[in-house]
Design a protein around this nucleic acid. Sequence first.
DNA 1: CCCGGCGATTTACGCTGTAAACAGAGGCAG
DNA 2: CTGCCTCTGTTTACAGCGTAAATCGCCGGG
Lengths: 264, 264
Amino acid sequence: MTEPDQSADPDSPEGRGGAASVMPAAPPGSGRGSLDRRRILGAAIEYIDENGLNALTMRRLGAHLGVEAMALYRYLPGREQLLDGVVESVIDELYGDPDVHLAAAHGWQDYLQRLAHGVRRIALAHPEVFPLVATRPPAAPWVRPPLRSLRWVESFLDALIDSGFTEESAVAAYRAYSSFLLGHLLLEVSQKGVKISPRDEPEGVPEAIEGTDLGNYPTVVRLEGLLSLDESAAEFEEALENLLERLEVVLREGRSPRRGDARA
Amino acid sequence: MTEPDQSADPDSPEGRGGAASVMPAAPPGSGRGSLDRRRILGAAIEYIDENGLNALTMRRLGAHLGVEAMALYRYLPGREQLLDGVVESVIDELYGDPDVHLAAAHGWQDYLQRLAHGVRRIALAHPEVFPLVATRPPAAPWVRPPLRSLRWVESFLDALIDSGFTEESAVAAYRAYSSFLLGHLLLEVSQKGVKISPRDEPEGVPEAIEGTDLGNYPTVVRLEGLLSLDESAAEFEEALENLLERLEVVLREGRSPRRGDARA
DNA sequence: CCCGGCGATTTACGCTGTAAACAGAGGCAG
DNA sequence: CTGCCTCTGTTTACAGCGTAAATCGCCGGG
């Protein structure tokens, strides 16, 4: 049941030991131990994973924890901070992933590969949370989604600089890498979300999209099969490798990745 | 006043005739003409641009239009559909942009360049709306943000196929292009948003981010200047050109962009 | 024994989205 | 002109939201 989609995506939640899932935390109703910030955030993530983001309210989260809504306010100043905490907690799962390293022990490319797949694993494990990771306003302009954590920014920059990147190119790589991860993963989870969970609009019409007749879009109709293929894993891998190759060129040429001339 | 940031970003709202702005629509209070779906959506976009996304409520939008909230329900089934309409309207601005063409009259690269800059112009003109464009669940899995419109998907695929791309590589290009646009532009507007509008958290602390002492992050501290530079326009241009080059290789090799061997 | 404080609850308020009933302004038949 | 129908916006109402403030039960130290 829920067979491995196709050729076993190594980052999909089923295709793995579950290293990227939330803490055990005990089943929902049985959470009897007294409240605590970690427990609340864990329950919030669990609740969003199960019921979707806009189903999360203070009252319902309280109920899920066997407690009144106002009890949460002893540990969190308000709903916004709850969401911030959720984002932070989800990203912190990276820290416990044994396949992702804080230092580039086996070269910067290995480091970037592991980090990228770690983030992808998180995104796929919490597809309902990831849009939050992507869109919550960052603490500083240069703390970019989806990494959003000073620790990982520091780790990223150190890894590249230690590997020979200049400071400028390390920063440029950080930007390109963030953008790549954000775009790919946000698209992947939103695609996943629409495929499996018509949560917001319970009436899902597979044919005749949104009432528009597709007669005016013959190419779309003709390519619908191709368009519907899910090649997320391969696309991700390929784009990641392309990015790494670009960075390798930058590194070898030993300068900021602003193109020198290149004539074309 | 509000001088062109640096070297005049051609997509920034100030650096242009305003071709990507919403319809004139008359000043807020004076909107006396009877209601109508277009007018409502235009006012909603205007309201979000001015007051932020979560300040938009049916009641306030009604007031902004000089009408009670319930009047809006005669033209829209509910709030969700209002947001869908906002997204659709914003993307439809592309259709009125004279610099963006529906057909690849001057080659597919010109087409993709114009389209990309058109979308970027929209994102920068409506930074508060763009996260909505990025995260609203698409109507079908292959209607991807940020294009989100059958018409543009059709136009995109036709342009590439007419230029010699195979169907497979046109679809792959569509995916890569969406992902590139989404990642770059979402990052750019969220960065912009945090820089100019501390709307949600009115207390902006420029130093000492979120209470963390930066002592544990020496590299971040050392590179803060570099990290804070806003090179969005150049990054965008460079990443776009890189993508076009990749696609050109795909086109010349006349096959799906799945890498044949390439050994490394 | 009291008692102070801590963790959770109760109550309350203003705001939200929206269902349902209502009101008024044309247009048209008689 | 009168009566009615439709079309558009208002009024009223309700459940649910986030959260401020007051309250309550408990529990360890004088």
